[in-house]
């Protein structure tokens, strides 16, 4: 009976990923034609992930740290099924949502109201559901006076508020079981809003969902994560309790 509850949310086993590196001009029609006759395609590849294995338990918050180019985002993208691994397997027990920026798909030439409906749809919400949470989004963003204004007249901070509010409320409403956060924490708005945003974010990740987060902010990782993976050049250099791994990483 209880096997379902004990099942890991995510099981990553021996995952490797290789990307083809494109050199200048290999993608144009004539070069395809030339290569077809010459048969001398020189392809170069780069290995981004190397036999990665780990599991994430239900409700766990897992952090991934590492230098730029160590494969953190690629790993999340594979977990999110954006990329397929070259070898190895991934099991996902639950609905996955991958978030790489707050308010993806905001079109500046549209009004704030139109944007709420558009971004909501992109995040997989039906129009009816967006209508239901529309007021919550507007209230939270504190931009109620600007709903009919085009977003191109907004300041950067206002766009940050809007993007954050839409994303967070949509996520909360979708009740996604697995949340993959790629360098997103907070809103990029002013201090006061940021405080509110972080509180909302805490509510979201501590609300029972399984979370995997990539971040360069070690204090954030340390504060929220149960376990941390340190990726280095596509290999797991360390995995374990947050404090232990972080202290190794900074040493």
């Amino acid at each position: 009976m209880n096997t379902q509850a004990h099942k890991n949310r995510i099981e990553v086993q021996d995952v490797s990923k290789v990307f083809r590196v494109k050199t200048k001009g290999t993608d144009v029609a004539l070069s395809h034609l030339a290569h077809f006759f010459q048969d001398s395609k020189k392809k170069s590849y780069i290995r981004v992930l190397n036999n990665i294995s780990f599991t994430v338990a239900p409700g766990e918050i897992l952090g991934i740290i590492g230098k730029n180019g160590s494969g953190k985002s690629t790993l999340l993208q594979i977990m999110a099924d954006v990329y397929s691994p070259n070898s190895g397997s991934i099991v996902r027990n639950g609905e996955v949502f991958y978030l790489t920026s707050m308010g993806i798909g905001i079109i500046e030439k549209l009004s704030m109201k139109d944007n709420i409906f558009l971004v909501g749809a992109i995040m997989g919400m039906s129009q009816k559901k967006i209508k239901d949470i529309y007021n919550q989004i507007v209230d939270f963003s504190e931009l109620g006076d600007f709903v009919d204004m085009k977003v191109c007249h907004f300041s950067k901070g206002m766009i940050g508020r809007l993007g954050f509010s839409i994303s967070v409320f949509c996520l909360q409403n979708r009740m996604t079981e697995i949340l993959l956060l790629d360098e997103v924490f907070g809103s990029g708005a002013d201090f006061e809003f940021e405080k509110k945003a972080i509180k909302k974010m805490e509510e979201l990740i501590q609300g029972g969902a399984t979370v995997v987060m990539v971040s360069h902010s070690l204090p954030t990782i340390e504060k929220y994560c149960d376990r941390v993976i340190w990726l280095d050049k596509g290999n797991i250099k360390a995995i374990g309790a947050a404090q232990d791994v972080i202290s190794k990483y900074v040493a």
């Binding site: 999110a80 954006v82 991958y98 790489t100 920026s101 993806i104 798909g105 992109i122 995040m123 790629d182």
Partner: peptide
Amino acid sequence: KNFIKSIKI
């Protein structure tokens, strides 16, 4: 590109 690389659509 931005969508395809960053969201499952």
